[in-house]
Design a protein around this nucleic acid. Structure first.
Lengths: 338, 338
DNA sequence: TTTAGCAGTCACAGAAGGAGAGTGCTAAAT
DNA sequence: ATTTAGCACTCTCCTTCTGTGACTGCTAAA
């Protein structure tokens, strides 16, 4: 299955050139610009072989060649995945993120914006999430005579809020006592443990509990935390999106759909970084794109996804190193407040 | 300045037809399809006058006419702004929104999604916000030995969270006591009142106070709450966005920029609904579009913006009635938990 | 003031042609 | 067996040209 040294080199040139210019590559250019010591005719022979093996294709018979999915796959396989961003850029990222560190959710959004700018494509980051959420604490704030705000804090510093309407007038003091009681009973519990707990409760306590259980159940059902999606305009300004229809269906998918759910998840424990190229993607609207995704966080505690979405013709080395770098930064930060 | 009855009618037909079809309208079609009892030649004379007065223009000399900004302006001025959505649709909106009512922020997002679908354009809704925020309550949750989560609740049920790192080990009990103290001292205060308050404080208390002050100052500085922007793909699938460049600069503006800041704000007290057409917009990238925005909420307490962004050629009647309806629904809901 | 009639203008679509890019093939050279 | 030069061939792309159809603007009569 080996291609031979020169064919390998030529394939790499084709992929690199296409990534850089989004135009089919001519054999002449390969031969002359890369100092291969062979004539264009020889290159043509090799390229013909690559075409036969489905590594490259032509938009029309008398055009140059462009890589197929198989070529990209081959390309990333032979790429060193351990590349790192230049230290200067790593520091830059680190500095930019450090300032906003105490902002929790906003922090992740900022991270997504920065990642998007770094790779000039769409960045996606989900909130970290435990497989089973655990009750940390709740607080009740009186809003009106019959209405209160429930603030539910789960482990991993996740905060959820709900409005509650009671059937009787209730003061902030009542609410505080109620919160204290539930806090001492439910501390550290999972949802099923809370459900199993049988304690003597007042109607209000039962109502709050129901709301907590409900909220936690919703959390547990979600496969991912809320995704931050940034840099759409960066990706869509690439030449492959010159005609609209493509762009629109994509926009719709990314904006509305739960496309992340369909994507095979990389596994954190294995330090895995997953690359999904074109047709490898289960989602049809994504089959012209490549995804690079990694997990961050702490296994069994809190895991989120960080990734890049872009045309197949993307700078894989840069995307990989950026995702890796961000994944480390995010993991670090999650560890700090888990 | 009056146009005369027939010219008025013809102008209205042109706007309506162009809204429906996005194509220049021919005088023949106007005369025959609308039963005007005059010949196309007469219509042509009138249209020539309208063109002279800058109400209509032609993409090229031998084409039909399409409305100018001035025509749209005239059109909406003569439109009845008090139109309401059909009751069935109002009920639908109401029902769809009722289910998720306790979710606060998510609720507004859903409202934006629904509005976008109703008008098949971009919907924007900002979180309600008071001119001066007031401290309602805070809670401190121990995350690690030196790290705590500060949950700050402001009036209007706005919740903000921050991570705090202390210099000494601190337990949940310490934190609870600290929170109780600050809660009793700061209840109901604005930021400047908190700053003016001179009480004997421990270093930790001072640190938390500083964080609270900082967060509230940031809130006060923002002119709008976080905007929810939905339905981009709906708007961008309209024919006016067939070529990309236009679409991209727009996408960038909406995604990144603080375009809302530049827009003259409608005033709630006057039950105002503001319509901004094309060139009337200060933002250049929005000058092909129309905005319809209203405020919702309660004057001096909590106000947010609800609006629609779309091509100038949009269904104004529907957009206006939808925004009106949503503005009422949102105002109602804000009143419930202020 | 309105209308019919008609010449005139312009966009658009399709055909035709030329230029250029790049290949595939063949036959000779290494 | 591999590499190379040379050349005919193919196909896209751009430009030009032309005919058609859609509308108008104007004029002169109703």
């Amino acid at each position: 299955m080996a291609l031979g040294e020169r064919k390998e080199a030529i394939l790499k040139i084709i992929v690199n050139e296409y990534i850089a210019g989004a135009m089919p590559i001519a054999s002449k250019d390969i031969a002359y610009n890369y100092n291969l010591k062979v004539s264009p005719a020889t290159v043509r022979n090799d390229v013909a072989y690559l075409e036969e093996q489905d590594y490259v294709m032509r938009p029309h018979p008398s055009a140059g060649t462009m890589p197929t999915d198989k070529a990209y796959r081959h390309y990333v396989e032979t790429l060193s995945w351990d590349v790192e961003l230049p230290p200067i850029e790593q520091d830059l990222l680190y500095e930019l993120l450090r300032e906003a560190k105490e902002e929790t959710e906003q922090w992740l959004k900022l991270a997504a914006v920065l990642l998007a700018r770094f790779v000039r494509n769409v960045a996606v980051i989900t909130l970290p999430k435990a497989p089973q959420c655990r009750f940390k604490r709740l607080d009740l704030v009186a809003l009106q005579d019959f209405v209160a705000l429930l603030i539910l804090v789960l482990y991993e510093a996740r905060v959820r809020q709900k409005i509650l309407s009671f059937n009787k007038r209730i003061t902030q003091d009542d609410l505080t006592m109620l919160a204290n009681k539930l806090n001492s009973v439910y501390a550290g519990m999972t949802n099923s443990e809370i459900l199993a707990k049988k304690t003597e409760f007042s109607p209000e306590e039962r109502q709050v509990t129901a709301c907590v259980v409900d909220t936690m159940a919703t959390e547990d059902k979600l496969e991912h935390g809320k995704p931050f999606l940034e840099g759409l305009h960066l990706m869509l300004s690439q030449p492959e999106f010159a005609q609209n229809p493509r762009m629109l269906s994509l926009l719709e998918l990314l904006e509305e759909g739960d496309w992340l759910g369909n994507i095979p998840r990389p596994e954190l424990d294995k330090r895995e970084l997953r690359i999904i190229i074109g047709k490898e993607n289960p989602d049809e609207a994504l089959q012209d794109l490549s995804l690079i995704i990694a997990e961050y966080g702490i296994p069994d505690k809190a895991r989120g996804i960080v990734g890049v979405v872009g045309p197949k013709r993307m700078d894989y080395a840069r995307a990989i190193s950026s995702v890796n770098c961000l994944s480390s930064l995010l993991t670090e930060s999650v560890a700090e407040y888990i």
